[in-house]
Write a protein that binds this DNA or RNA. Structure first.
Lengths: 207, 207
DNA sequence: TTTTCAATTGACATCGATGTAAATGACATT
DNA sequence: AATGTCATTTACATCGATGTCAATTGAAAA
């Protein structure tokens, strides 16, 4: 028998679908192998296309990376916005928001994303996060009945504190916890236990 | 005029000196340009040698990277040990130790180092830090007069909390603080203000 | 069916990073 | 001064990632 090209009748995707598949694969590669693992060849191989095809859709390798950053940043902001929405509607506890942030950074991959962006120096990609973060501060401030600017500044400090902890936990939490004989949820519990320090505000002190 | 080789009478260094210069340059490149900037050509160019020379001294590009990680990890553990020593001798305040940790991660470059290691997956390089970290927990525990195992566990959580915050501040602190209108020392102040929560234990003997 | 569009591919070119081997020369020892 | 060691260089080879371009082909439109 001869060697046939039974291989594969080409599959033609819509551009948006092609981009979606590529970004999903690229995201998995980033989380599993780090930034250097996100190459045109690797992504192309995972979704069964050629690297030239990716260049066609993203313009260049840098274009793919940029699109990946934008995509993951969008996921992060969406996760934050949803957490804010839950906080505003029912009696969503601030603790639930802390968990949402930690999940976004660890499971969601925002931690590795942020580290990648920070190390590469492309801080501009973080810009879309600004609105979500400030929205988050507003939500907590409202929830806690904060009014004066100074107390609002304190809420900003609380958000900074939560985000830094969640980011650190996502990246170096596991090995560090191992060194310190700390349980898996140590970081969250610490943040949760420390949070009241910030969120307890004095009622308008007239006395 | 003829092209002369006035150029460069070779400079012959001792192996350890050559390695030292290379690692110093590599460290600067890592901090300024990220992991991808640490190439044989770049390091060689900075110290005025050829890339083949670096391979001679470090065996391979991976060898250079590994040596850089080891060198920076050694600097970090030394910084931690010195901070512990100051804490043990005089009345070095815990706050001073917090500042030392933050400086090590930001100025010292331990933050970018840890992120690089975490993203690359070479967690083994962090192993030498284990002893320094545990030593740090011991020092704080002694300072605070902690005795029972449970309270010591709390000290470990405090160290985890400080380290995660310092790491996060070093990597994504600046852009995040900008988004939140927080001052440069916001992260340190938060940690400092929250620390008593952990360090306040039963009054130690004497006073 | 025929035509048209563009997603997709294959082949090729380029560039940078890494690695190898032989030759060179700086410096200590004799 | 003669010699040996080895740090250093030069030249070359390799490999992977990126990019270009013409040809192919799936699928909708005519």
């Amino acid at each position: 028998m001869s060697i046939e090209k039974t291989a594969t009748r080409r599959r033609r995707r819509l551009p948006e679908e092609a981009r979606r598949e590529a970004l999903t694969s690229a995201r998995a590669l980033l989380l599993s192998g780090g930034p250097d693992a996100v190459t045109l060849s690797a992504v192309a191989g995972e979704i069964g296309v050629t690297h030239a095809n990716l260049i066609h859709h993203f313009g260049s390798a840098a274009g793919l990376q940029s699109a990946l950053m934008a995509s993951m940043v969008a996921d992060l902001t969406q996760a934050l916005d949803e957490a804010v929405a839950r906080l505003r509607t029912d009696e969503g506890a601030p603790l639930e928001l802390v968990n949402a942030v930690f999940d976004a950074f660890s499971t969601g991959g925002a931690g590795r994303l942020a580290a990648w962006i920070a190390l590469s120096g492309d801080l501009s990609h973080l810009e879309p996060v600004r609105a979500a973060v400030q929205n988050l501060v507003d939500a907590i401030s409202d929830k806690m009945g904060v009014q004066d600017a100074q107390a609002r500044q304190g809420m900003g400090a609380a958000v900074l504190f939560i985000a830094l902890s969640a980011f650190g936990e996502a990246l170096i939490g596991p090995p560090l916890r191992d060194m310190l004989d700390q349980p898996d949820d140590a970081a969250r519990r610490v943040v949760a236990s420390l949070l009241p320090r910030f969120l307890i505000t004095k009622p308008p002190t007239g006395s």
